[in-house]
């Protein structure tokens, strides 16, 4: 098991390296360091001198991937790629193009993201499973049919509508919560009620429908039929057998998402003015701050790989028949 985990972690290195190379090529195919300098230096009175100085200050005056004139290993190490990408593996993100330390920013912005994403994830899971269970209980009745249609209808509404509509109704018309913003501590509650509710409602359609199929699959299995034939009440069958067995694929499936919760929600954070990593990323895209984009991509990839790893572990924990080798 430990050997397996170690191997998987080693396997993550080429993937992360690939991600790094890929994002570098993508970014510098569209942006020259000169462009970046000009954006950071503002609109007025930008001289070529200032651009050169900026590039030197931020380490963009080296070649991107290969430094021909440099001696020895310097051919590869004296490059923008080496200086910007390698420290990432030690989670040293360096300074953003505007001079602030990215690591510090990530550390502070991570919490609002988590405080929003974790409740959405947990409450969403709970609500979806509950609804799915209800639909499974009422299967083949009009309630099930109506529920599924409702789910499909809810899935068919763009997430933007939930946010726009919710903000308009609850904050603007009813004065129930602040329109946007964030405060730390317990004050966060009033800012988060609405985004969390919207996040949950937005995911109810697809979640419920997906879990319902898992439940129905489980209900169709032989052991359930046996249990029912023994004369067990429907409630007991559903809760004691179906729920317990169906939870295994549901939970292991959900594990992969957990690490990426750190990354926050791009749209909701922007709309509600929550200073998390999601809005950080969007701002960086909009202002073309490469250092931040690069750091966030790296972090996102690393967390995704961690999620895959956790899934594997979760499988072995719930199902002892699976052995990782």
């Amino acid at each position: 098991m430990i050997a397996y985990l170690l191997r998987r972690m080693l396997y993550a290195i080429p993937i992360l390296l690939g991600v790094n190379v890929f994002i570098f090529i993508l970014f510098f195919a569209v942006n020259s360091p000169d462009n970046m300098a000009r954006i950071q230096l503002g609109m007025k009175h930008v001289t070529p001198d200032a651009v050169a100085k900026w590039k030197h200050e931020h380490g963009y005056d080296r070649p991107l991937f290969f430094n021909g004139p440099a001696p020895g290993a310097g051919k590869f190490t004296e490059t923008v790629f080496f200086h910007k990408a390698v420290p990432m593996f030690a989670f040293q993100f360096g300074a953003a193009d505007d001079g602030r330390d990215i690591g510090q920013d990530i550390k502070t912005r991570m919490w609002p993201s988590l405080v929003l994403a974790v409740p959405v994830f947990l409450i969403g899971l709970l609500v979806n499973i509950t609804f799915a269970l209800i639909l499974a209980f009422f299967r083949a009745t009009y309630i099930d049919f109506g529920g599924v249609v409702l789910c499909v209808a809810m899935m068919s509404i763009s997430g933007m509508f939930y946010i726009i509509g919710g903000q308009f109704l609850v904050s603007k018309l009813l004065h129930l919560v602040p329109i946007s913003g964030y405060q730390g501590g317990w004050d966060a509650f009033k800012f988060l009620v609405l985004p969390v509710a919207i996040g949950v409602i937005g995911g109810v359609g697809s979640g419920t429908r997906w879990y319902r199929t898992i439940f129905l699959e489980e209900i169709g299995k032989d052991y359930v039929r046996t249990a029912r034939a023994k004369g067990l009440a429907e409630r007991v069958v559903l809760f004691r057998h179906v729920l317990r067995n169906a939870l295994i694929p549901i939970l292991t499936g959900a594990v992969v998402v957990i690490p990426t919760l750190f990354m926050g929600s791009l749209i909701a954070e922007s709309f509600f003015g929550i200073p998390g990593l999601g809005s950080y990323t969007i701002d960086a895209i909009r202002s073309q701050d490469f250092a931040i984009v690069h750091a966030m991509v790296f972090l996102g990839s690393a967390l995704y790989i961690l999620g895959l790893l956790l899934t594997d572990v979760a499988y072995t924990l719930v199902d002892p028949r699976i052995r990782l080798a």
Binding site: V19, I23, L26, V30, N31, I285, V293, V297, S301, Y304
Partner: peptide, 25 residues
């Protein structure tokens, strides 16, 4: 597998944003 894991691990919006900028060039 390596190719698709690598691509898959990059957050989608970032990838699209970068690519859209590239196509403008």
């Amino acid at each position: 597998q390596y190719i698709y894991t690598t691509l898959n691990s990059i957050p989608g919006v970032l990838l699209i944003a970068a690519a859209v900028l590239m196509m403008q060039v």
